Computed example of a mutant assay.
Amino acid sequence: MARSAERAPDPARGLVIMDNWPGYDLNLFTYPQHYYNDLEYVLIPHGIIVDRIERLAKDIMQDLGCCDLMILCVLKGGYKFCADLVEHLKNISRNSDRCVSMKVDFIRLKSYKNDQSTDQMQIMGGEDLSTLAGKNVLIVEDLVGTGKTMRALLSSIEKHKPNMIKVASLLVKRTPRSDGFKPDYAGFEIPNLFVVGYALDYNEYFRDLNHICVINEHGKEKYRV
């Protein structure tokens, strides 16, 4: 992986996985048998995901430590990322002179049908966004693609005048449809591929897959709605 990934000091890009990265053979890993014919390859193994999140937690703590933080987890795809990130933040806080007081709330954004992002975004769940007024907000998202969904969410939150808003995204996709939005913290920048696993889904399937993988055409057709 190291030969095909740039070292990217820019936290908004994270670890950059190049377009020519072939991924890992599925036979090198264990994964649920019911997906055996539905995946092309492993793009990012689970262990690398967890290690990268630990570094993100360190970066966030260096920037935002010693403050009260409202973490807004974007469901459903962001729940595993958020859980691991919060756990690492707690560990750093317990074992250093930098501390952060955290509260976590959950919100759901709906913008995909099958493997295509739509122009409509629905915000569901969570408390009234007005409760974010004056708060330091960290939005935790699974993937930023075009950027339109995140910009719409930020616009909705900014109306209530929080003290600060930062965005952490596990993945940032390089896509020609991007409007240029970049999160403040990114785990990985990936090619324009439809990926599943580590709570990222295709029509609610593949959330139980630990690795981040590329779905194949058979899988798309099998679970299409």
Rank of each mutant, 00 (worst) to 15 (best):
167 V>W: 02
102 M>L: 11
172 V>C: 14
138 L>W: 06
163 N>E: 07
79 Y>E: 09
68 D>I: 02
109 L>H: 07
146 T>D: 05
56 L>P: 00
103 K>L: 04
164 M>Y: 01
154 L>K: 03
159 K>W: 01
64 L>P: 01
165 I>W: 03
115 D>C: 02
98 R>H: 02
74 V>Q: 06
158 E>V: 00
87 E>A: 09
158 E>H: 03
73 C>W: 03
133 A>G: 10
65 G>P: 02
103 K>N: 13
129 L>H: 11
156 S>N: 10
175 T>F: 03
167 V>Q: 01
133 A>D: 15
93 S>K: 07
59 D>M: 13
142 D>L: 07
167 V>A: 03
48 I>M: 13
59 D>I: 05
73 C>V: 08
141 E>I: 07
54 E>K: 15
98 R>S: 08
64 L>S: 10
171 L>R: 09
100 V>Q: 04
60 I>Y: 06
83 A>T: 13
58 K>R: 12
170 L>H: 06
49 I>D: 12
172 V>T: 15
101 S>N: 14
59 D>K: 12
85 L>E: 07
49 I>Y: 09
130 S>L: 09
109 L>S: 09
146 T>V: 01
100 V>N: 06
125 G>M: 12
58 K>D: 12
170 L>E: 04
75 L>K: 09
132 L>G: 10
169 S>A: 15
174 R>S: 06
160 H>C: 05
117 S>R: 13
58 K>G: 02
104 V>Y: 04
110 K>F: 01
89 L>S: 06
57 A>F: 03
111 S>N: 12
